[in-house]
Each structure stands twice: as C-alpha cells, then as structure tokens.
C-alpha cells in the first residue's frame, strides 16, 4: 500500500495519494508479470475505496454539524432576548405562544422579572438548568465550535475529493499502460 502514498497528509492526518507520474517507476516493463499489474490495480482500487469511505463519513458528519447551527443560533437569540427584557425595568410579563402539539399553539406569560434560569437541551436526551448568563456563554461557545467543525469538515471533503480524483486517474493510467505493454508482448 505504501507505494501509493506520499509522506504528506492533511492537518487531520488523511494521507495524500501519490500521483503515478511514470508507471515504470513502480513496474519494470521488461520483467513485470500480469499478476504484478493486477496487484497494483488492486492496490489502487483498495485505496480509492478507502478514500470514498472516508468521504462518506465526513459528509455525514458535515451534515450533522450544519443542521446544528440554525438551532443554536435560534436558542441563543431567544436567551439573549429574555435577558434584555429582564434588564428593562418593565413589569409587563412577556406574552408568548408555545407549541402544545404540532400546529397547535397556546398562549403563555413569562414573568421575565423573576426569570433567573433557563433549561437547555444539551443533546443525548439531557436537559440542564442554566442561569441566563451561563446559558449565553455556553451557546456562544457551542456555536463557535459547530462553525469550526463545519469549516474543518469542508476542508477535509475537498482534500478527499482531490485524492479520489488522483486515484481514479492513477487507475486509468496503470490500466492503459498495461494495455500498451500487453500489445508489445503479443507478437512474441
């Protein structure tokens, strides 16, 4: 497997695929057997499949992180709004609609003046109590982390796509090289 790898890898340790510039550097045209060529082609295939597998996994991770961002943003805005209302010296309770069930809403009042804590879903079926300021802090960090993860995943996907192309071209080059080689052998 090593002959299809370079020393390089991307920041997440995904190895870079080696571009086969000259097939002769891997196979000696005068001594190599059909099995040698098949072996190399097989190695190319395996490597290609590994990259594709990684690509699929990365894509899933990326979609997961992407879908989190709007949720965090909305929650953060809500907590910030509650905090603003609390700081205003307004005795009016906050009128709101809350979802009782799908398409069914009911009216509620929030006593913002005496509101100290909110409950946040942390994920993994866990909801924890947070003072307003702590909630804002947590959500802000979460948002930054999610955005960072999206950037990283997009970078990795881009890198993986390049490696996939390299390996596809490699396979084609070895294959065509082999055809020429076999033609050269035929008359003998």
């Amino acid at each position: 497997m090593d002959r299809l790898k370079t020393e390089q890898s991307n920041p997440r340790g995904i190895p870079q695929a080696k571009f086969i510039d000259r097939v002769e550097s891997l196979l000696n045209p005068s001594t190599c057997t059909n099995e040698d060529v098949d072996q190399l082609l097989k190695e190319c295939q395996t490597r290609l499949q590994q990259y594709k597998f990684m690509e699929e996994n990365k894509r899933l991770a990326l979609n997961g992180n992407k879908s989190k961002i709007p949720n965090i943003t909305k929650t953060l805005e809500m907590v910030q709004y509650l905090k603003e209302r609390k700081e205003e010296d307004d005795d009016e309770p906050l009128q709101t609609n809350y979802e009782l069930n799908e398409t069914l809403y009911s009216k509620a009042e929030i006593d913002v003046q005496n509101l100290d804590n909110v409950y946040l879903w942390l994920g993994a079926d866990v909801m924890m109590e947070y003072p307003l300021d702590e909630a804002i802090e947590l959500l802000t960090t979460r948002l930054a982390v999610a955005k960072e993860a999206v950037t990283v995943a997009e970078e990795d996907l881009e890198f993986l796509r390049e490696q996939i192309t390299t390996m596809e071209v490699n396979t084609a080059r070895v294959y065509n090289w082999d055809i020429t080689r076999r033609k050269g052998l035929a008359p003998k």
Partner: peptide, 23 residues
C-alpha cells in the same frame, strides 16, 4: 460524539445542578 460533548459540559457543572434526563 454528542454524548462526549454533553459529558464534557456536565462535568464542569456543579454536581447538584438540576438536570433532566429523557428516558
């Protein structure tokens, strides 16, 4: 991954902090 993130958050919170678990 989600569980690990939650665990990280939960361990930094005071042990008696009110916390709900959906089971």
């Amino acid at each position: 991954e989600e569980h690990n993130i939650v665990l990280k958050t939960i361990t930094t919170a005071p042990k008696d902090r009110k916390c709900f678990h959906m089971i």
